[in-house]
């Protein structure tokens, strides 16, 4: 009996050692899978039902959650959808009828808009909209924002962020409508005639520090 106990202890501790040292390609084991892996569906997470499931029919499946919100729904606090159709009539005529729904930005809000611009736009368009971002040459065909925007209405700039244009993709999935309307206002401050370039927050952040965040 005593011998058995000793052997059992040895085997158990060997098992712990064996589970503990793991290959870095595998996540290893956990003590309580039902406490470690979420039973709720986390966004963008894979739920691997080989690890944990309550439903026997589900065992061994991987479920990947990367879905759009249901059609026709609106996130709380989000602005109303941009209903201009994605065609040339929408681009050239209808978009200009949409006004920027936000109050003019000042101070911190404008700085925040500048930060978003530096993260999302400056990588191609450059921190001052001069088409000199680190990726501009690689993507190719990048337009100079400050050269074009004075001739565009707010709605038309927003149209481009909503649907994309030429080589540029849609930013509707990355930035909320409010954030994009803010960026439209920020672009206005970059234009040479409306604001002197020295007072723009963009002067603070060059493209090298953007990548750090």
């Amino acid at each position: 009996m005593k011998k058995l106990a000793i052997i059992a202890t040895l085997i158990l501790s060997m098992a712990v050692v064996f589970i503990g040292c793991k290959d870095k390609r595998s996540p290893g084991s956990v003590y309580m899978p039902d406490m470690a892996y979420s039973r709720a569906y986390e966004s963008y997470a894979t739920r691997d039902s080989a690890i944990f499931t309550m439903d026997p029919n589900d065992a061994g499946h991987k479920i990947f959650f990367n879905n759009l919100p249901p059609a026709g729904t609106l996130k709380r606090g989000e602005l109303y959808p941009f209903n201009v159709p994605n065609d040339s009539n929408g681009l050239l005529n209808l978009s200009s009828l949409v006004k920027n729904p936000l109050e003019p930005l000042t101070g911190k809000d404008l700085e925040e808009a500048g930060r978003l611009f530096n993260i999302n736009c400056a990588v191609c368009h450059g921190a001052k909209g001069e088409n000199n971002g680190p990726l501009a040459a690689k993507v190719g065909g990048v337009k100079s924002i400050i050269a074009l925007s004075p001739t565009y209405s707010d709605g038309r700039i927003f149209f481009v962020t909503e649907y994309g244009q030429l080589n540029m993709g849609s930013y509707a999935s990355q930035l909320s409508r409010e954030q994009r309307w803010r960026i439209v206002q920020y672009i206005r401050t970059l234009e040479p005639k409306t604001a002197p370039a020295t007072t723009t927050p963009a002067a603070k952040t060059d493209s090298a520090t953007v990548a750090k965040k």
Binding site: V16, V17, G20, G28, Y31, A36
Partner: peptide
């Protein structure tokens, strides 16, 4: 090794 293995379990 047992203690190290036991601590390492669940950490990735």
């Amino acid at each position: 090794y047992t203690i190290n293995g036991a601590i390492g379990m669940g950490r990735m």
